[in-house]
Design a protein around this nucleic acid. Sequence first.
DNA 1: GTGGTCTAGACCACA
DNA 2: GTGGTCTAGACCACA
Lengths: 119, 119, 119, 119
Amino acid sequence: MNTMEFERDRPIFLQIKSAVKERIVRREIKKELPTIRGLAVELGVNPNTVARAYRELETEGIIGSRVGKGTWVIPEALQEIRKEMIEDIIDKFLNNLHSIGLDSKEIKEILEGINDRDI
Amino acid sequence: MNTMEFERDRPIFLQIKSAVKERIVRREIKKELPTIRGLAVELGVNPNTVARAYRELETEGIIGSRVGKGTWVIPEALQEIRKEMIEDIIDKFLNNLHSIGLDSKEIKEILEGINDRDI
Amino acid sequence: MNTMEFERDRPIFLQIKSAVKERIVRREIKKELPTIRGLAVELGVNPNTVARAYRELETEGIIGSRVGKGTWVIPEALQEIRKEMIEDIIDKFLNNLHSIGLDSKEIKEILEGINDRDI
Amino acid sequence: MNTMEFERDRPIFLQIKSAVKERIVRREIKKELPTIRGLAVELGVNPNTVARAYRELETEGIIGSRVGKGTWVIPEALQEIRKEMIEDIIDKFLNNLHSIGLDSKEIKEILEGINDRDI
DNA sequence: GTGGTCTAGACCACA
DNA sequence: GTGGTCTAGACCACA
């Protein structure tokens, strides 16, 4: 996590949540998560803020925690969550394109345009 | 605009702004926008809230307004804004995919997957 | 006057007033001003709007009018008004520079910078 | 900010905006801005009015803010904004002089005239 | 405590 | 009639 630039207009706890989730899904965090206090110091935020991010990740079934034992990734959930995230990203993408009035043909052209990019 | 369900957790003025912008880009609003007070009544919100949405669209150069005359689309801006919106949608899409750790190959596969869908 | 782009956020009658005043001081309008109705049509505004601009110019002693005789420049006022306008422009300029905290030395440098420009 | 006389005929939020911007550019405000409510009380205006001034300064990239933390100057933006302001003042000055019909020679004379003043 | 949103409602100047 | 400003005041989520 090292340093992290926070966007304004989006709660910090949500940004931390996203960042941690991404790192888990990218397998950069394999098992043990940083302690709440440690991460809070590292990011220069209030421990409550990190705690809230962790709490929501726990509710989503991505991580587990036990007092005295710390916080860890739940590997069984990983594959499923990754799939969901991809699906969400695609849905949002298509919805956005539809919302500005593009039809199937135009969307297909855009998809080809992306393919020609240096991704 | 007819009716409009507002999501909670996203400011109403931003939702109005997006909705109006979409309708403009889709050419459903061609020239004259509804009056601030008219739209406010229609949506069941305070005129100030509509005014703020309009004001920001005006700052973005999409619409113009004048006391006593009303509010209208700036047609010259349209093409440009449409392009920007498409570009933003694509960027966000690719960023999201990268952020969960997909590499070029996986992204290309996803693009093909979308192409095979019924869009 | 031909065509004229109006800025938003500044009343049209004031913009007409400035434009007419400028044309008078530049001696582009020598004696007779366009009729209120004629100018209104030309600019695509309400005659009341032009009338208000003319009325204020008359109050400032720049123009005279009589029903049935039209509107004309008062040449005696011209030299004086021109001087006032120049003085106002200079005062505003120096005030603006002071307001952002520039000292005499910096202002002198700016003045030299302007002199080196292609004015 | 202490006290502040508001001109009529110019929106209060714009006057607050200018005043704050000047104080920032003059480095009288170094880092922390007064809180919205604090400044509102000090100036005897509604918090919404100060909030709008701050919001626009934030849009211009001059200040940043976060709920619960307050409002602060973005130091990186300062140099750039100072330059822009000077450039704007000069442009406006030259435009004004041109608009009343002065030619290069006359403008140069005026510039020298200013230089001889006690600035 | 702090910024941000929203409402209800008054008032204004321009067209 | 129309957009624009402003106030008073409530409520919210984040820190």
